[in-house]
Design a protein around this nucleic acid. Sequence first.
DNA 1: CAGAGCTCCTGAGCGC
DNA 2: TGCGCTCAGGAGCTCT
Length: 345
Amino acid sequence: MPELPEVETVRAGLAPALTKALIQSVEIFDVRSLKRHLPGPNDFVQTLVGARILAVVRRGKFLWMPLQLAGDNNPAETSVALVGHLGMSGQMLLRLPGAEPDKCNRVTILVQAAGPAQLSNGDTFSGGGFAANELIEFRFIDQRIFGSLAIDRLINTTDAGLGGFQAEFAPTPSASLSDSGSIASESHWWLNRLPESAAHISRDALDPAFDVKALVRRLAAKQTGIKRALLDQQLISGVGNIYADEALWATKLHYDQTAATLTSAKVKELFANVVSILQAAVAQGGTSFDDQYKNVNGESGYFAVSLNAYGQTGQPCKRCATLIKREQWANRGSHFCPRCQKLRP
DNA sequence: CAGAGCTCCTGAGCGC
DNA sequence: TGCGCTCAGGAGCTCT
């Protein structure tokens, strides 16, 4: 189940191959994967063919590619992007034409790679292992069809900061919003924008511009369980069921502890744990728990071996040896240590 | 308005 | 071997 580390692994894999690539053709195998593209599948195909992909950007679990449409000399004015969400079981794979078919392949976008190029930060663009002008199949795989692809307008961020994460424009943690804002230019018009459909999503936990004070303030007013709050993408984005359970275990919090009962120190500790767990998972290429998550080459991530709570039902807690318990919660599972993570008044 | 609950969906895995 | 049941949950929507 893809969360921030899995989506970031996919983004990092797609970016070298797809940046500046030209879309040749689009094949739809299941229109349900385009349910978020309201104008319909024909419009989706017609809009994409001939478009150039300018970047691959992510906020939380949302991923988007700003586009320059065919014959459009003012893409900053048109301001559209191909927006993808992996949902529960989505994968984005890069294959050479003629490669073995993948199960549950819902959409295939054939692109011509731009190949080696100079990036604006001075680094040399490798082409992601693909030669210049090489044809690549971008395959959208999705067993349960909770994910989707759509074309959406990009709108300005309300705080004028970066819309999402894009490695070559990653600000340093000390950079202020205005610093990152100044990066936007005519040639990189999308930097301070994000898809309208993702505009309600909070900055994610790994975003240097994430407002921890605001999180403390908003949680203090939440009369709901802390896990529900962690999964609320409008409060903090990028966290799903796996990393929520891990962060709660690390902070010794019960999933149903009312958010408003936490001290601000405890909220900061929880946030710090979310950040370090997500960072560690990114470094290991994400978690492959049930074979639903793969990187762009179809390989699994290695974070599963580091899990302390999620999927550890019946295993001894690594702190106190009490057996980890799984409880049914909000139509899903919650894993926790009944001794370390007690519900407090 | 805030919070809880429902719903979309299908293939893998398991028991009989 | 084969059939049918169960299970997984992100996020938007709909109730209360």
